[in-house]
Design a protein around this nucleic acid. Structure first.
Lengths: 254, 254
DNA sequence: CCGAGGCTTCTGGTATACCATATACCATCG
DNA sequence: CGATGGTATATGGTATACCAGAAGCCTCGG
């Protein structure tokens, strides 16, 4: 039994060919990875994606590229202006705040579910994950450890979502996190948020250990809404409105 | 600056041509409307969509049809099996429950925001919307009024989401509601849910009028989670697992 | 020197042809 | 008669050609 599940060990036990991976999916993955990797908010100018150039670069025709673009556009990562170009989207401050608000709602529900249903072992794992971090060189969190913390931070939140057992919660928050990652570097350096964050996380873990769904949900919500409020106050580096020369502001006003 | 604001009333105040509406978007809208209209869960057999037939029927080539399919697939309305066909998705019970759970999380947050930020007039409008309904012929809700209530029900929930002022909340719940609509007919006839629902709604409105965010959020959440629990218990008419003839049944017979 | 108007080029949108494989049917062979 | 392997057809995936509109450039007239 090399690979579990519905696969009766036949004489020729070959790994199944991935007939499911299409060029579209590959292009989608590649583009999303590229967009995630680059720090969008560092660039001052708009970043345009050229279908033909990408097509040539990836070695496939424009068709799968376009379908990948269709996906990315629906997810809010790019915006295509007919006969103008395809541009990587930089969210406005308002949109960021809305994303964080939605995230707060989803994670609060996730925390509730974890408190109700998760296995003790999983919750213990959560604590270990945090302990492992702030047991580093004394308690100070300044300096280069911020980068490291940034990852641990995301990992913590993703862990709670995952432990909720609700696949849909995970799917919906995934893209939110990608957008968050792009601006976390900026927010985390302000207001000593890192230190506060750790305290909040520990309180959430304690509520989960007490199996207190109300408190866990409340703490998770308020923790994340705190970030929303922070961005609302100090997020002026973000766009305040959509691109000026918008082709059809019409649809937004309707 | 010939054209500063949203729309300076020019001598020729014509409605702008909708250069933004592509065949893809039109096909997407048409398909989504069609899928929404048909009662998916009534049909016993799988429903397949033929790209070429649709292409011919809508009078456009396959390309925009395919891009629309890409969108619908990402939204979870169809599933495309390479070289097999494109099928309308019927959600499993588990998926339905997850959707309702997410909906509960989002609407709970929406209710909180409404209690905090909405204008008094909007909340009053909400009450009027509900009063207008259950002020009908005496208080009984049985019989054909259920259909009417079903719409009022959705309208109530959508109103709260909209009044939250959070665009993203509205966008995310939109598709959830479409899936809900498909199974509401079945759930609403069971367990006298309609009558209970009205009571719950009124309590939510009262909490909003008191500007009590905690209570509004709690009531909204519990109301919707109640539906989730109901489906969990009595939703056995739904699929319990993914399609049996998965793309590669092959391996099972080996 | 400057602006209007047209030309060139670039870019996404669409149509169409072709490809590879899943499926059903069918001929063949034991 | 049943199993097996070939084959026609159907269907989604991909490549490519062409279209229309937008941006920039360039010329030409004032």
């Amino acid at each position: 039994m090399t690979e579990a599940g519905p696969r009766p060990s036949s004489p020729l036990d070959m790994p199944r060919l991935d007939t499911g991976s299409t060029f579209r999916d590959l292009a989608y993955a590649a583009l999303k990875r590229a967009i995630t990797a680059m720090d969008i908010y560092d660039h001052a100018h708009e970043i345009r994606l050229d279908e033909r150039r990408l097509s040539e670069g990836l070695g496939v025709s424009r068709t799968p590229i376009r379908e990948a673009m269709t996906l990315l556009e629906q997810e809010g990562f790019v915006r295509t202006l007919p006969r103008r170009g395809i541009y990587i989207v930089r969210k406005t401050k308002r949109e960021i705040v809305e994303m964080i608000t939605v995230w707060a709602a989803l994670e609060s529900m996730a925390a509730r579910l974890v408190a109700l249903n998760a296995a003790d072992g999983d919750i213990a794992e959560l604590r270990r994950l945090m302990d492992a971090f702030h047991d580093g060189p004394d308690g100070q969190t300044g300096g280069e450890r911020l980068e490291e913390y940034s990852d641990a931070n995301i990992a913590f939140h993703q862990a709670i979502i995952r432990m909720s057992g609700c696949t849909l919660l995970a799917e919906l928050t995934e893209n939110l996190f990608i957008h968050m990652r792009a601006i976390r570097k900026i927010t985390i350096h302000q207001d000593n948020r890192a230190a506060r964050s750790i305290v909040d996380h520990m309180r959430i873990i304690e509520a989960l250990e007490r199996r207190d769904p109300e408190e866990a949900a409340r703490l998770a919500r308020e923790h994340t809404l705190g970030l929303a409020a922070h961005v609302e106050r100090h997020g002026d580096f973000l766009h305040t409105a959509r691109d000026t020369n918008a082709p059809v502001t019409m649809t937004q006003t309707m």
